[in-house]
Design a protein around this nucleic acid. Structure first.
Length: 495
RNA sequence: CGGGGCGUAGCGCAGCUUGGCUAGCGCGCCUGCUUUGGGAGCAGGAGGUCCCGGGUUCAAAUCCCGGCGCCCCGACCA
């Protein structure tokens, strides 16, 4: 056995996940229940998410700002549905400066209620629209059951909050951001996602419509990986975000809000990881290539010159993701043996390992090992071509990880015509189930009760170019209750 | 909020049933030497409020009572 410390997935998936995120040093448990320390290697992944999304937001006209952590209770309670939806999870501050506060303050579970009143101050005219603001911050939701990255009491995210003149514009913004999420998650994190609309029961508290990207983890459970809400005018009405339109009428703005969180890191772990540990897609890997010298007392100079040459070649190579130079590390720590380093870097998910030993230097080669396939390649140690060759391998790994995940999702997406059939699937292989649905709350709740599956999304008929959802052929019956079906829906057990 | 598990060295654990010897083991850590192509070896060494508070007892890691904390699984939520 190699990485003994990691529990195999088929033995205990949860334990495997915990082992990976702790042993690979992505996180550590903090003294407060449900809170975690995001360690440097894990934080680097979050930085990669930031560095991937932030330029995309800015390229589409968004700007960053920062709103306060504390929200007065009276602000949060103004939108009733929103307040009710979040109250059970809110942490309250009741004392400050040694005195009881006149009004208790919510530690933000999301920021609609503090941003709305500010927008009301700032927006007067249709000429002030659209407002396209995003913030990168932390939020707190007092969860009963937590799980590193997937659901923690405090987590990091970005939340965009926009205001628009028309409903169409707000809808276009919502779908436009969902496309940015899809593009980033699929292209950079190599995680295939379903795009769709949430059911009424699953939508954001206070929203008109919620859209999401949904990913499938390797244990067959779904994970909501990003959400975009068309808030309609509800919040504008309660917070008084009105503008004077060109026609002289005072109107509430149309709003959207959207976010992705550190949960994405959990998704990367559970989509790509294997029994040896983490497997990182090259485009987000903090270290894309690790160079492991094979020391030799007798031929130390030979190895040193080989490593120096590789270091030089990699230093000039591009990262392959348009984000600058190749990110590589030479692990020349003398206290560990090569074998130990091989296992350690595999556990940490580094996409490519290069081995440089006396035999290689003599043969004018470098041994490259792919993390995704375990394949060993002998590359010419030509300083002119080596960097480019490595970059090509990284891109091949990126593509392979996405294809592999997509194949897994396709193999684990089934159609079903009855509740019993869905139940059967949930008890065996799990995965996504696509089935016709009437759209009724009652049979959605019944499904959850009997099978543990929830509505993940109603797939969009024309992708992200339109908000129309897929409808079944006329006459199709709901797979759950037998009434006329109005939608096609993806169901799954979810995190 | 229900069910389960756990708290003893940095990490993982044994010891507890049936109270008693200087509280042990593995990994890690420090020093030295030899090593290094898939988790190296030898020698020496450092490291402990046994989760907290009470109780029983000549004597408590161990028994009793109370508390705290964390993890996992469910139900609820990103």
């Amino acid at each position: 056995m190699f990485v003994k410390a990691i529990t195999p997935r088929d033995q205990d998936y949860s334990q495997w996940y915990i082992d990976v995120v702790t042993k690979a040093e992505l996180m550590d448990y903090a003294p407060v229940k449900g809170c975690m320390v995001i360690r440097p290697y894990g934080y680097a992944l979050w930085e990669a998410v930031h560095d991937g999304l932030d330029p995309r937001f800015k390229a589409t006209g968004h700007v960053n700002a920062y709103f306060p952590l504390f929200i007065p209770e009276s602000f949060l309670s103004r939108e009733a549905e929103h307040f009710q939806g979040f109250t059970p999870q809110v942490a309250w501050v009741t004392r400050g400066g040694g005195e009881d506060l006149a009004e208790r303050l919510a530690v933000r579970p999301t920021s609609e209620a503090i941003i709305g009143p500010m927008y009301a101050k700032w927006i007067q005219s249709y000429r002030d629209l659209p407002v396209l603001i995003n913030q990168w911050c932390n939020v707190v939701r007092w969860e009963k059951a937590t799980r590193p990255f997937i659901r923690t009491t405090e987590f990091l995210w970005q939340e965009g909050h926009t205001c628009h003149r028309t409903e169409d514009e707000a809808e276009a913004e919502t779908l436009g951001i969902l496309e940015i999420y899809r593009d980033f998650v699929e292209g950079t994190l190599a995680i295939p996602v379903l795009v769709g609309r949430k059911s009424e029961a699953e939508k954001f508290a206070g929203a008109l419509r919620t859209y999401s990207i949904e990913a499938l983890m390797s244990d067959g459970k779904g994970l909501q990986s990003g959400t975009c809400h068309n808030l309609g005018q509800h919040f504008a009405e309660v917070y008084g975000i009105n503008f004077l339109d060109a026609d002289g009428q005072l109107k509430p703005v149309w709003q959207s809000s959207w976010g992705v969180s550190t949960r994405l890191i959990g998704a990367v772990v559970m989509v790509h990881g294997d029994d040896r540990g983490l497997v990182l897609p090259p485009r987000i890997a903090p270290i894309q290539v690790v160079v492991v010298p094979i020391p030799s007392d007798k031929e130390a100079d030979l190895v040193a010159s080989g490593v120096a040459s590789v270091r030089e070649a990699l230093g000039r190579a591009p990262a392959g993701d348009g984000l600058g130079r190749l990110r590589f590390k030479v692990d020349d720590r003398p206290e560990y043996t090569p074998g130990w380093k091989f296992n350690d870097w595999e556990m940490r998910g580094v996409p490519v390992r290069l081995e440089v030993g006396p035999r290689d230097v003599k043969a004018g080669q470098v041994v490259a090992v792919r993390r995704d396939t375990g394949e060993k390649l002998k590359l010419p140690a030509d300083p002119v071509t080596l960097g480019g060759t490595v970059t090509e391998i990284l891109e091949a790994i990126q593509g392979n990880l996405f294809e592999k995940a997509k194949r897994f999702r396709e193999e684990n997406t089934r159609e079903a015509a009855s509740l019993a059939e869905i139940g059967e699937i949930m008890e065996t292989g799990r995965g996504f189930v696509l089935a016709p649905w009437c759209g009724g709350d009652a049979c959605e709740a019944d499904l959850k009760e009997k099978t543990g599956a929830t509505t993940r999304c109603l797939p969009l008929a024309k992708g992200l170019s339109s908000s129309a959802v897929t409808t079944p052929a006329p006459g199709t019956k709901c797979s759950l209750c037998g009434e006329d079906a109005r939608y096609m829906a993806y169901f799954a057990r979810a995190y």
